[in-house]
Design a protein around this nucleic acid. Structure first.
Lengths: 254, 254
DNA sequence: TAAAAAATTTAGGCGACCCAAAGTTTACCG
DNA sequence: CGGTAAACTTTGGGTCGCCTAAATTTTTTA
């Protein structure tokens, strides 16, 4: 038997599925899990027993299933690994979502803490770095497609220079000012400069190792309440306007 | 039972081990495989039987083990996946070799053809692209380390511009000329412009989907015979001077 | 060349998965 | 309140990958 706080790849899959179902609805039922993972109901029962024995879920026969705090934390971790791979595959390698998701599912169990962190930061970096961004990815795609009529290094360098100069022009003056996070619109990104206050959101972010320098992306904004869904260091978080106002960012030129 | 020409993750591990042992010595013995994979000798026998039944290895009890053509091809594929991940982790993410190797071992079985291809090309691209290369990786490392005293996007952009201008100066004139592959020294890289001839090496490279535009890296040169070990599209190949002379490349500014 | 040593295979077992089929429990409706 | 459909669990059986211990074959060496 594997140790109490470790999970096999397949148990992590179950936990992940439960996490998603619990997030969408209130509690999970065995049938949902079976359908999601495309396994037999009876396999689910066995998995639930194991997860329950190890303290990841609250489970009693015929009862609904919820995550324990420990289970929730672990599930978040798995999801984070999945999303990090997914982001890398789709945003950097430009692989289509279906294929990316499939590969991410199989690979997510093997990513170490350190590699996960580097990967998340790499995607961040490519998206935010002035020489990265869309044009870098375009260059990459061009590199992939080239069959004979490719461009030489020299030409490529010249193009890059043009691109960067253009960008410098765009930025000069106004685009890259300092702003509170709640000023950012959907899909905009920024680099955290400062997090005001001590408790509340500041503490929460510190726990997730979100510090000045981290890149934040706004996933969604609620036009009524002003609440924000953001993505930072691979985590998805929801912030109120007040919380977001405490986070000072440098807008990314995007 | 899995289909005849598919292998489970663990069988791929065995095949990979056999490939490495056969490459190093002439033929493999069960004991070498057991030691390499840190499994019991008897587990090896079972695996050998399976691999033999599926036609990946030549095997008879008490006899030495060699790869069939099919096995050789599949093994090369696994190794290529492993190396591609390894390269990405070490060269791009700057993860240390031990950790990278461990993760690559676990992930290599889940990489699809397409993602593998994109990944190999991405590492190539990052290394060869004028805005990529060492300074991009440096920038990434800087981004990872930043704890408070990070640089702003504006400064970062300015730095990149400086860097690219400097590079353009370096290149102007002589560094980036056209040369036959055998002119490249160890660790140099180049972009294939043309492959002369029809049969022999030209055909071999075409089979591996190595075309003009592909990036070649010289791994080792034999000073006596002039033979080259190269890496291209994730494959490691050995070429004679004559073969290498048929491949025209544009030197990379490295 | 015969025994000792080493390498290899066989036999049997275990744990982690999975499924199909059969048996329980729950929820809902007339 | 019973009946039934849906949801859930249990049972029994199979695969895969690994292990140990014992038997067998090959190699070494004296």
């Amino acid at each position: 038997m594997t140790p109490v706080d470790e999970l096999s790849a397949s148990m992590e899959d179950y936990l992940e599925a439960i996490y998603h179902i619990v997030t969408a609805k209130q509690a999970a039922r065995a049938k949902d899990i079976a359908k999601r993972l495309d396994v037999n109901n009876s396999s689910v029962t066995g998995a639930l027993r194991t997860l329950s024995e190890k303290g990841f879920i609250n489970y009693a026969p015929y009862d609904v299933i919820t995550l324990t705090p420990k289970g929730h934390k672990h599930a978040e971790d798995v999801v984070r690994r999945h999303e990090a791979l997914m982001d890398f595959f789709t945003k950097v390698l430009c692989v289509d979502r279906t294929e990316a998701s499939e590969a991410a599912c199989k690979m997510e169990h093997a990513v170490s803490r350190n590699i996960l962190d580097r990967l998340i930061r790499f995607v961040e970096f490519i998206e935010i770095c002035p020489r990265g961004g869309e044009t870098l990815i375009q260059g990459f795609n061009n590199h992939c497609r080239q069959e004979g009529n490719f461009i030489t290094c020299q030409d490529s360098l010249a193009r890059c220079l043009e691109d960067l100069k253009q960008r410098q022009k765009d930025i000069e003056g106004d685009l890259l000012e300092t702003a509170p996070l709640n000023d950012l619109r959907q899909d905009q990104r920024g680099k955290i400069l400062k997090i005001k206050g001590k408790g509340g959101i500041s503490k929460k972010l510190a726990e997730l190792e979100v510090t000045p320098g981290s890149i934040v992306e706004v996933i969604q904004t609620d036009t009524e309440t002003g609440a924000l869904d953001i993505k930072v260091r691979g985590y998805r978080l929801s912030l109120s306007t007040e919380e977001a106002a405490k986070i000072l960012v440098e807008r990314s030129g995007n």
